Amino acid sequence: MATGGRRGAAAAPLLVAVAALLLGAAGHLYPGEVCPGMDIRNNLTRLHELENCSVIEGHLQILLMFKTRPEDFRDLSFPKLIMITDYLLLFRVYGLESLKDLFPNLTVIRGSRLFFNYALVIFEMVHLKELGLYNLMNITRGSVRIEKNNELCYLATIDWSRILDSVEDNYIVLNKDDNEECGDICPGTAKGKTNCPATVINGQFVERCWTHSHCQKVCPTICKSHGCTAEGLCCHSECLGNCSQPDDPTKCVACRNFYLDGRCVETCPPPYYHFQDWRCVNFSFCQDLHHKCKNSRRQGCHQYVIHNNKCIPECPSGYTMNSSNLLCTPCLGPCPKVCHLLEGEKTIDSVTSAQELRGCTVINGSLIINIRGGNNLAAELEANLGLIEEISGYLKIRRSYALVSLSFFRKLRLIRGETLEIGNYSFYALDNQNLRQLWDWSKHNLTITQGKLFFHYNPKLCLSEIHKMEEVSGTKGRQERNDIALKTNGDQASCENELLKFSYIRTSFDKI
């Protein structure tokens, strides 16, 4: 039985969820670079991206490699990797027998973001014989899940209580170790020597080791999670996991709180800001991140802002960003909400898709409305799209047979046209069989910064309504002859009103 693990408890099935942008060198404390989270699957090609990484700022997932063999891993080693800020997950990587050479110096898994409450997941690794993470000293947050690894031993010899604050939620089941077939031998045991430290858990006094050649490092209890030197002297209180010299914040392997210019500090002093819960960055760093993602459509890219001495992905609820200094300031009234469309555009074809934009005031991208039916549609669209004030790209209304009016965009005031449909149009209306009105132009103002209007096959939309939009939106004169079809717009509506004058002759039985 794995020490510190839980057996036999019912657990939810383990679901495996399925960018080499360097964020800056980590400095003297770390020998390499800070790398983003990685999802490495199918083959070993991307694994080489770990070569210079000291910190993975995010998670590391290595999974679904069915053609790899043990010899493929023999020359692979990433000794610079010290810390993973989120979680480490391995799933069905064939041929991998140990992690001792792959990650010989991995010391800390912070667990800032977890995989279903777990910071370390080893699942269905069919050839893994031992973990071998002999320098792993601290899992700051989260638990361990090690399950269905039929060859995995050296679990009962690990004292997880020396690595985690609590072992109650560890789930370590259905491994070879369960069948008591392992016969784990710690260093020196074969020669009758006791080389590794022994600890007591559940009444068992057991030597602690990761492999037959690597003991588990056990520091004096007084050192807590700070770690200790090879001689057993406690590291500085700002260290986490390990250090090369005692009581020196510049000799830590990793930091308990924050890293700044080669030393570990309790908090980031001005003019620095907390970033990702582990390091200090200056304003320029946060500003660069903001600008890199301002026009990016890459998933996970955030326009970072500053709030409460932190550089964070977005302002919290009730705050909006001051564009001059990136500071989050309290909103006066309802907060603006910028919604970034991942692929640059979004099609609204149902109430469900409209709900995804609920509360958005600025759309960074283009909207395509293609709704053919739905219950209580006008009210639903207004509830979900009615706060949109600005669209950076274009607005396209296409084959939306259920629409009679666009009044559900009740606050839309600006279409920038930074991206144009077919390279020309910022407003595009095609084949809307029941569209009769755009907006009530006596109450609604709309500016279209650039781009043209396109109207074709809107049989109940009168040309007068379209011409009014040209005047109000500032697009009059931009359109070419064929942009607004004269014969297919309003051709099934009563669009022309003329005053009919009647004269009559009164007659009676005795007068003409």
Results as ranks from 00 to 15, higher is better:
M137V: 10
I40S: 01
K310L: 06
T329P: 02
P336T: 04
S161W: 04
T68I: 02
C235W: 01
S324N: 11
C35Y: 00
P316A: 03
P334S: 08
F103R: 00
N170L: 08
G142D: 02
V34Y: 09
L99K: 00
P31Q: 11
C186T: 10
D165R: 11
V253E: 09
I146R: 01
C53K: 00
N135L: 02
I84Y: 00
P316Y: 03
C243Y: 00
T189G: 14
H28V: 07
E49N: 15
Q303C: 14
G58V: 00
R256S: 08
V34M: 15
S244P: 04
T329E: 01
T229H: 03
G203I: 04
F275T: 03
F116R: 07
H59I: 03
E314K: 12
E151Q: 12
K176T: 15
M125R: 00
E168Y: 06
P197T: 12
V144Y: 01
F66I: 15
C243E: 01
H226I: 08
C186L: 07
L29N: 08
P70H: 10
C182W: 05
S244I: 14
I109F: 01
C335F: 04
C264S: 01
L152K: 01
E238H: 11
T140D: 11
C215Q: 01
G95P: 00
V108G: 01
C335E: 04
N282Q: 07
H290L: 07
R74L: 01
T140F: 08
P31A: 04
G227W: 06
E151A: 12
E238I: 01
R256M: 05
L128S: 01
S244Q: 13
C268G: 00
G203L: 09
T140M: 08
E231S: 06
R298I: 12
K217V: 10
L327D: 14
I84V: 03
L29R: 11
C234Q: 02
S143Y: 03
G262C: 02
P220Q: 06
E124A: 05
S161M: 04
N105Y: 05
E97T: 07
M38C: 03
T107S: 10
F103N: 00
D261P: 01
T140K: 14
G183M: 05
M83C: 08
N257C: 00
E130Q: 09
P36R: 14
S323L: 10
Q245W: 09
C239A: 00
P334L: 11
L50Y: 04
I146G: 01
Q303N: 08
I163N: 01
I172H: 04
T267P: 00
P31H: 00
M38P: 01
I122G: 02
I82Q: 06
M83R: 01
I82T: 10
N138E: 14
Q245T: 05
P36S: 04
E181N: 10
P220V: 04
C215Y: 11
M65H: 08
S143L: 09
R41M: 12
P70R: 10
Q303G: 11
S323Y: 14
P336L: 07
S166R: 06
V281K: 01
S324W: 14
I146V: 12
N295D: 10
L155H: 15
Q299V: 08
H212Y: 14
N138V: 03
K193M: 13
N105R: 08
N309S: 08
V265K: 00
C243N: 00
E97D: 04
H48V: 09
E71V: 15
C53R: 00
F283K: 12
E33D: 14
E33T: 06
L60M: 06
G333E: 03
S213Q: 12
V305D: 02
L164C: 09
N325E: 10
I146F: 05
T107Q: 13
G111R: 00
K67G: 02
L88Q: 00
S284L: 12
D169M: 07
Q303H: 09
L240T: 14
N170T: 07
C223V: 01
F283G: 04
C286W: 00
G333S: 05
N257E: 04
E130F: 12
G232P: 07
A190K: 06
P31Y: 09
